[in-house]
Amino acid sequence: MEYQYPIHYSWSTDEIVDVIKFFEAIEKAYEKGIERDELMKVYRRFKEIVPSIAEEKTLCGEFEEISGYSSYRTIKKAKEASSGDKIKM
């Protein structure tokens, strides 16, 4: 994709990499499908970096605006799925 991921420059390099991995996992759910457990692992790490619900909504909203992919709907579907399921949006 040809766009920039929403990130905060106050984050460490590792945190930026992990947030980008989360957004890449959302892309993968839409484009090919992703294992639920893999998606939830990157989401849990994302929540360690972005614990605020308001900040999460802002970042995910920015990502959806530029990509068309909804992090909210993808994570909601993953939370409703069982371990081992594949998430395909």
Rank of each mutant, 00 (worst) to 15 (best):
D37V: 06
W11C: 03
F22L: 02
K21T: 04
S12H: 11
E31K: 11
F22E: 04
I66L: 08
I16F: 00
E15Q: 15
Y72H: 14
F22V: 02
E62R: 15
K32Q: 11
G33W: 02
S10P: 01
Y3K: 07
T13G: 09
I53Y: 11
I7Q: 07
E38C: 01
K57E: 15
E62G: 01
R73M: 07
I75W: 05
E56P: 01
A25I: 01
R36K: 10
E80P: 00
E56K: 07
L39E: 03
I7Y: 03
K77V: 08
D85M: 05
K41T: 12
Y30P: 14
S12P: 00
Y9I: 14
E15D: 15
Y9T: 15
S12A: 10
F23Q: 02
E2M: 07
K57D: 15
I53D: 09
Y9Q: 13
M40L: 15
I49Q: 05
C60Y: 05
E64N: 10
I7A: 02
V42N: 07
I49K: 05
E38W: 02
V50G: 04
K86W: 09
Y72Q: 11
Q4G: 05
A25T: 03
Y69G: 13
K57I: 06
K79T: 06
Y5A: 02
E35K: 09
G68D: 09
M1W: 12
E24K: 08
S52E: 08
F63A: 07
R44Q: 08
Y5L: 06
D37L: 00
A54S: 10
K86A: 03
G61I: 08
V50D: 02
I49N: 06
E64W: 02
V50W: 03
K77D: 05
T58A: 03
E35R: 04
Q4L: 07
Y72L: 15
G61S: 07
Y72D: 12
T74Y: 05
P51H: 07
V17Y: 12
K76Y: 14
Y30K: 10
I34W: 01
H8N: 14
K57T: 13
I66E: 14
S70D: 12
S12Q: 13
E65M: 15
I20C: 06
L39A: 00
D37A: 05
E27K: 05
V50I: 12
A78L: 07
K76C: 12
K47S: 14
I7M: 08
E62M: 13
G68H: 10
Y43I: 06
E56T: 13
K47C: 13
A81C: 11
